[in-house]
Design a protein around this nucleic acid. Structure first.
Lengths: 227, 227
DNA sequence: TCTTAAATGATAGTATTACTATCATACTAA
DNA sequence: TTAGTATGATAGTAATACTATCATTTAAGA
C-alpha cells in the first residue's frame, strides 16, 4: 500500500499550483535542496533553473519571486507539522503530555516523510530554523498576512495555545507562550549550533537539552504552584 | 555641560571607523533613517549615497557591504544597551529588581540619547526589532562570530545570565533563558504590532503587557517554589 | 610653511540579480 | 480535430553590488 500525503495550500501562495505538475514539484524539490545547501540569500531562480535543467521563466510562472516561494515552503512546513501534531496527540487525554509531545515535535530533528515525494522534510526543517523568520520580518508582513499567507503558522500557534489553556485555564498569556515555544524551539537549536554561548547546550549540542529547557520553561509558567 | 558618549567598536566591523569622520557619521545617521523608513531589503548604498549627497564609492570605503553595516548597527545598539543596563542597575542590591529593570529596558520604546549626535536610538531600536536577527541568520554566522562581531550581543546575554544566577544559583538554563528574554522582548513586540494573533497583546498593543508576560515567564522559571 | 599622505568626489565599468516579453513547440482535454 | 494550456528557448531591461581610476581637497608632520 502506498499512501501519498497532500496538503491543500492557499492559492495566493503561488501563481500556478506547484503540486499539480511535474515541473512544479521539481521546483519545490530543488529549491529545498539549494536553499538548504547555500542559504536563502544565495538562492536565485536562475541557479534553481540551472539545477533543475529548466528555465528561469518557467519558474516565474509558478512563483512571483523567491520570497513568495519561501513563504510557500514555510506554509507547507507548518501545515505538515500541524498534521503531525494532530496525529501524534490524537487520543491523548492528558494536556500536559500533549504539550510535551508538541515541544518534542518542534525541537527534534525531523525525518523525511516518505509520503511526500518531492519534499524532504528533514532539510525543510533546517531551512525553517534558519530562514523561517525572514518570511515575516519584512515590510510586506501586513499585506502578506492579509492574504492569509501565515495562516498555517498561526493555526499551529492557536493549537498550542489551546493546549496551554487546557493545562491551566487561568494562564494569562497562552498565545504569547505558544509563539515563544515555537520560535525558541528553533532559535535555541540555531544558537546551540552556531552561537553556543547564547545557550546552555554548547557542550553536548544535544537537542534533548533544548526540549528539557522548553518543558521546564512552559510548565513553570503555567504551573499552579507559583509563589 | 555637554557630554558626548563614545562606544569603542570592534575594528573588524568596518574598513574605516565611521565615528572618526564627518562622512562616516553621516553614513550612520542616514543609514538608520533609510533602513527605518523602508526596511533593510530595500536599502542600498546607492540610495544611501543619494540621500547623503555623497557617492557609493565613498560608502564602500567605510563598510564592505550593507550586511556588515547592519552588523555594525546591531553591535552598536547592544553595546549602548549594555551601558544603559549597567547605569540603571548600578547600586541595585536585589537581583530580582535588576532583572526587572533589564526586561523593561529591553521591551520599552527607547528615547533618543542626546549624547550621541549621529545615532537615533529610538529608530535604531525599531530596526533591531525587525532586522536584528538577519545579522546572524546567514551562512556567514560562524565566520562573523570568529571575528567577534556579535560580542556586544553575547556580552549582554552573559550579563543577563549572571543576574538570573544571582536570583537562583541552581537554575539550569541561565544563558538560554537570557537569550529567550532578549529575543522575545523584540519578537513579541513585533508580533503584537504585525501578527497580533500570535500574542495576547493584540487588543491594547501595550508594551507594558509584553513586560508583564516576560516577567511572569522569567520569575516562574527561576522560582524555588516549583511543583 | 612646505610636503606628503590620506580622505573624498566624480565618473566609469562589470557581473549578477530580478525580473518581463515574445514566440515556437509540445501536450492534453473537449 | 482543434483549441487552449504548459513548457522551452531566447532576448532584453533596470537595478544591485560591487571595483577601479584619477583628480582634488584636507589634514598632519617635519
Amino acid at each position: 500500500m502506498e499512501i501519498q500525503l497532500q496538503i491543500k495550500m492557499n492559492e495566493k501562495l503561488f501563481l500556478r499550483n506547484p503540486e499539480k505538475s511535474e515541473l512544479g514539484r521539481k521546483i519545490i524539490l530543488h529549491s529545498i535542496q539549494l536553499i538548504h545547501q547555500n542559504g536563502f540569500e544565495d538562492f536565485t531562480f536562475k541557479k534553481l533553473a540551472k539545477e533543475m535543467g529548466s528555465t528561469e521563466a518557467g519558474i516565474y510562472r509558478y512563483f512571483e519571486n523567491k520570497h513568495k516561494l519561501l513563504i510557500y515552503l514555510m506554509a507547507w512546513y507548518w501545515s505538515w507539522l500541524e498534521y503531525q501534531v494532530g496525529f501524534h496527540t490524537h487520543n491523548m487525554k492528558d494536556p500536559m503530555l500533549k504539550l510535551k509531545k508538541v515541544i518534542k515535535l518542534l525541537s527534534s530533528t525531523v525525518e523525511d516523510d516518505l509520503r511526500t515525494d518531492h519534499i524532504d522534510e528533514s532539510r525543510l526543517h533546517q531551512i525553517i530554523i534558519t530562514e523561517g523568520s525572514k518570511t515575516y520580518l519584512t515590510r510586506s508582513v501586513s499585506e502578506d498576512n492579509k492574504d492569509q499567507l501565515f495562516k498555517p503558522y498561526k493555526d499551529l500557534c492557536a493549537v498550542l495555545g489551546n493546549m496551554i489553556l487546557e493545562c491551566n485555564p487561568s494562564y494569562k498569556y497562552p498565545k504569547s507562550l505558544a509563539s515563544t515555544i515555537i520560535e525558541m524551539a528553533h532559535l535555541q537549536n540555531f544558537f546551540m549550533n552556531n552561537l553556543p554561548s547564547l545557550t546552555d547546550f554548547g557542550g553536548n549540542k544535544d537537542e534533548a537539552e533544548v526540549i528539557e529547557f522548553l518543558e521546564d520553561l512552559v510548565f513553570s509558567a503555567i504551573s499552579f504552584n507559583k509563589g
